[in-house]
């Protein structure tokens, strides 16, 4: 479906159809509140409790601090992984023998859950930011490497031949054919990888550091079963994850990169 058709459809939707999802969410929240108020001895808070908890976090200034801490780790881990993995993956993918050599190794490292690296991270970097950044780096490095390798593979031979035909130097070839041809796939890969990074940071913060949203959740539970804070933390994690995903998706719509998404 083209964008125009979609736009037409969404414009033609009546107000009541648009309200339906919101009504559904409200109904779920109401049910949740009722269920909680029927069992007052329950540890789980209702939606109102969660909102109060969010307000409390904001008042103590903890929320911005923890959000910044988590985002800081994700940014560094992801950026380091991208800077190393993308050029390496493109090179490995380009040379067939290189790929034969490294592919089995990459395949073994990739399914090792980044969290399994926690002991090693703590051994090398101690408890703290570098440790969490290392875990996110490990979690992002292998998916990005594989994306870059397969992106090179999927360049249609025609483009490579045209590049050779017009007598480009190697640098020109990389900049003017290879790079634009792989960018769309790299963006998709980065979006998925960023999702993994967001998953890993929460887990890493539960175990390896003393700040951040993951720490908020585990600490709220351990220190006095404050489940309202736990759920508030989850809501924040979900919201930020959604925003990250939306941000990456809007990159996919940049005109220059869009060519491969307009299915032909």
């Amino acid at each position: 479906m083209t964008a125009i058709e979609q736009e037409k459809r969404s414009r033609s939707l009546s107000l009541s159809t648009r309200l339906r999802p919101i009504a559904f969410i409200v109904a779920l929240l109401v049910l949740w509140q009722i269920a909680v108020s029927r069992h007052p001895d329950q540890l789980l808070p209702g939606p109102l409790g969660v909102i109060r908890a969010l307000a409390e976090l904001l008042r103590h200034g903890l929320l911005p601090k923890y959000v910044v801490a988590s985002l800081f780790r994700v940014t560094w881990g992801f950026a380091l992984a991208a800077v190393l993995a993308v050029p390496l993956g493109l090179t490995i993918g380009w040379y067939r023998r290189c790929e034969m050599a490294f592919n089995p190794l990459v395949q073994i490292f990739r399914p090792i859950s980044p969290l399994a690296w926690i002991p090693i991270a703590i051994l090398w970097f101690g408890v703290g930011d570098p440790s969490a950044i290392f875990l996110i780096f490990v979690g992002c490095f292998f998916p990005l490497l594989l994306t870059a390798m397969s992106a090179v593979h999927n360049i249609p031979a025609v483009y490579i031949n045209v590049g050779r035909n017009f007598g480009l130097s190697t640098a020109q070839f990389v900049y003017r054919v290879l790079y634009p041809a792989v960018v769309p796939q790299l963006i998709i890969g980065s979006r998925i990888t960023l999702g993994i990074a967001w998953l890993v940071v929460v887990a890493a913060e539960m175990i390896a550091v003393n700040s951040g949203l993951g720490f908020l959740i585990i600490d709220a539970r351990n220190a006095g079963n404050r489940y309202d804070l736990v759920i508030a933390g989850m809501v924040i994690i979900g919201t930020i994850g959604l925003l990250l995903d939306l941000g990456m998706r809007s990159l996919e719509r940049v005109k220059l990169f869009r060519w491969s998404y307009s299915g032909d």
Partner: peptide, 26 residues
């Protein structure tokens, strides 16, 4: 290959990431 002899391919030979002007100027 050499730019003195250019091969025009069956299809899909134009670069989808460049505009018409960008392709001609390639």
């Amino acid at each position: 290959p050499d730019p003195r002899r250019i091969l025009v391919f069956q299809e899909r030979g134009v670069f989808p990431w460049l505009t018409v002007a960008g392709n001609i100027g390639f």
